[in-house]
Design a protein around this nucleic acid. Structure first.
Lengths: 247, 247
DNA sequence: GCCGATTTGTCCGTATGTATC
DNA sequence: CGATACATACGGACAAATCGG
């Protein structure tokens, strides 16, 4: 047996929502009907639906059904952040050309300040990379990244111009698994002004992310500064049952 | 039987991670140990762990264990999980006073433009509310909200000065369930400049959210414009198994 | 208001697959 | 290779919410 049925069901239902088989505000077939259709267990269908719900495709209503809440709304004018993906993947998905300039590539040892900022232990050897990303030849994103040096052995500036993730995953066999992000806005620094095309922008979008490898060990801490017009982020929140709003 | 065991386990494990019983980079007790401890089924433990993982507390490693990736440094207390720091929370965290001014409160019928923007059908009666949020008497956030009129009967401008969600949930018994959000930055409008204290800011943080009620029917569409310095957002991404990185 | 049918939500116990050590 | 640990799935049971008669 192959045993990834729930993902197949997820993919299948997602496709049918996207192509309009199940339209906005429709109810999906009941879970018992889906069990019959896919010849699987109740829990397996539920897992697929839970994944769809988490991505904003549908919403289960207790005692009633599972309603489609997805609409074909496509905004390609800006650079949307999805899950964990590389700069190239995002660029491709958003339909723009992408290039990367490596401005700095150095190995350092984390001092107390860097440790507090990145989450690496003091004394950890890290690779510090500064990059500028160009979208359609305009420098619009600046990345400051710190990688645990022991996990990126053999990495060269040439790799950094392409995809560091591709190198560590494909060449080193490391798996990237979970990433925690914080988004805020920050006044553009002198370096930002020097390297980016941000005339007239006082604040930039700033994304800080801590990425963990397959062993759940901190692999990278990075900060990305985006031109404000080229930043876009999507999210779906499923509200917890409890904690009603109170004035 | 009560049958919310998985949530109890979730709360219990979360507490133990936060109080250091299970420290950063530790492995949690194995799932079979947890099954014994909580006297429940395998699936129940897994559901609790999945919830913790989705909130960035831990990360399961196939064949190895479940590693804690939460650190005390994360000031999660001031944030709704995976959420945008709300107006009240922000005020609390910064130790400042919070007030709301209702600038506009009118019922209108959605025309084609508004329908396209909000997702309400053309011809739907909606309540249009414009509010300004003040922190320490500084106007820093502007909310433009459209509510499906049939769902907010009896709502007054006085309610809008406090919490509209509190009213519809506590008074009308409506349940708010799922919300889809998009975050971007936008050039401040004339209205923004007129009502907000955003001297020197060209771009503002803009959050668009569509909120669905317990029946998965669009209940509210809102746009919030934040002073860039007063915006902060957290997120945890769990990577899908497939699509390895490729240059 | 009640009851029964439908539908989603929670949980159990077991079996098997797969990755790590 | 065996032991351990997480991942997927099954089939059944019951709880809880909804809806129509």
């Amino acid at each position: 047996m192959v045993h990834i049925a729930y993902d197949q069901i997820y993919v299948d239902l997602k496709r049918q929502i996207e192509n309009g088989t199940y339209a906005y505000e429709d109810l999906l077939p009941s879970q018992s009907q889906l069990v019959k259709r896919y010849q699987c267990a109740h829990n397996t269908v539920r897992k697929a639906i839970a994944k769809l719900a988490g991505e904003g495709y549908c919403m289960p209503i207790h005692g009633k059904g599972v309603r489609v809440i997805w609409t074909p709304a496509e905004d390609r004018d800006s650079f949307a952040l999805g899950g964990i993906e590389t700069f190239e993947e995002s660029a491709k998905r958003n339909g723009v050309s992408a290039r990367t300039h490596v401005m700095l590539f150095e190995y350092i040892v984390a001092d107390a300040d860097l440790a507090a900022k990145t989450g690496f232990d003091e004394g950890t050897e890290v690779l510090h990379v500064e990059r500028v990303r160009l979208l359609d030849d305009r420098p619009l994103i600046r990345d400051t990244s710190y990688y645990r040096a022991s996990m990126v052995r053999g990495l060269t500036p040439e790799h950094a111009e392409r995809s560091i993730y591709a190198y560590v995953e494909n060449e080193l066999g490391l798996r990237i698994a979970t990433s925690k992000r914080t988004i805020c806005m920050e006044v553009a620094s002198e370096t930002d002004r020097q390297w980016l095309d941000i005339e007239g922008c006082t604040y930039l979008a700033k994304v800080m992310h801590s990425t963990y490898d397959g062993d759940a060990i901190l692999f990278e801490y990075a900060e990305s500064h985006y031109h404000p017009a080229y930043f876009r982020f999507h999210d779906t929140v499923i509200r917890d049952k409890e904690h009603p709003y109170q004035s």
